[in-house]
Amino acid sequence: MDKHLEPDPKTAPLVRRIFEMYAAGSTQKEIIDQLNAESLRTRKGKPLTVNSIRAVLKNKKYIGIYHYDGKEYSDAYIPALIDTETFAKVQTLLIQNKRAPARKWTKAEYLLTGKLFCGICGQTMVGESGTGKSGAKYLYYNCLEKKKQYTCRKRAVRKLWI
């Protein structure tokens, strides 16, 4: 008996679309909003969430790799829905965008937190504020590596300059 998996004709195009949208620069929230507006639902009939989209974007089965009992099997005869280049790009974007919500945790608007990177060490630049001798508040971006371990020599950049 010839046992093999075949892509579901209903869900395979949706998986491809999610990967294409994210690789093209759409945020997970934008993808969720668009798909929920089209009345697309999870297998359980519920609206899509960040967790459901993230699970799709991280699932190696879509590049033909089967995961079982802590091991990966690339020879499991699972048809790949996504090419490895797109999958790799999406994984890189997921890592880069991981800190992007940090800008919501502050009272000041640091729109570039998680999207601005240090030109010296490549680490994320994060928003900070300080108060001068006159009592004036200054907003700036600082290298996360410098803030954590003081190993980067990048100077803080005023928010107004960016």
Rank of each mutant, 00 (worst) to 15 (best):
W105C: 03
W161M: 08
A136I: 14
N59V: 00
G64R: 09
K107N: 06
D83L: 03
K154S: 11
L93S: 01
R17M: 13
I63D: 02
A88H: 04
K133T: 09
A156Y: 13
K107M: 06
K137H: 11
W105A: 07
I32G: 12
E145D: 08
G130S: 14
C143P: 07
L139I: 09
G114N: 05
R158E: 08
K10N: 13
R153G: 10
T11C: 01
G130H: 04
A108Y: 15
N51V: 15
Y77G: 10
T113I: 02
T124L: 15
G119R: 11
M125V: 00
K146Q: 10
K159T: 06
W105R: 02
W105F: 11
A156I: 06
L48T: 01
V90N: 10
E6L: 13
E6S: 11
T27I: 10
N59A: 02
K148F: 07
K115F: 02
I53H: 11
C152M: 05
R153D: 09
I65E: 14
T27F: 14
K71E: 13
D33Q: 08
P13W: 02
I120M: 14
S52A: 06
N51K: 13
D83N: 14
R158F: 11
L14K: 03
K61M: 06
L14P: 05
I32R: 14
T151Y: 12
P13L: 03
T86E: 04
L112K: 14
Q96D: 00
T106G: 00
K3S: 15
D33G: 05
D33Y: 01
L35P: 07
P79C: 06
E30N: 03
C152D: 02
A100Y: 03
G25I: 11
Y150A: 13
Y77Q: 09
I95S: 00
K3T: 11
G70Y: 06
K159S: 09
C118S: 06
I162D: 02
K71H: 14
Y77V: 02
N51L: 13
L40A: 09
T86V: 03
D83Q: 06
S129P: 01
T131F: 02
A76F: 12
S129Q: 10
K148R: 14
K10P: 07
S129Y: 13
C118N: 05
G135V: 14
Y150G: 05
L116H: 09
I53Y: 06
A102G: 10
G70T: 04
T84A: 09
H67V: 11
I162T: 07
L93K: 08
D69C: 15
A156L: 08
R103N: 03
S39L: 12
G70R: 09
C121Y: 04
K107Q: 07
A80I: 04
G135D: 08
Y66K: 12
T113P: 00
S52M: 03
V126E: 04
I162C: 07
P7R: 15
Y68N: 12
G119D: 03
G132I: 11
D69I: 12
L35R: 13
A37V: 00
Y62K: 06
V50W: 08
R103E: 01
E6W: 05
E38S: 15
F117W: 05
T151E: 13
V56S: 12
L116S: 08
F117Q: 06
L112M: 06
Y73T: 02
A24F: 10
F87P: 05
Q123F: 12
W161R: 04
W105V: 08
V50P: 04
R153K: 15
K115V: 01
N97K: 13
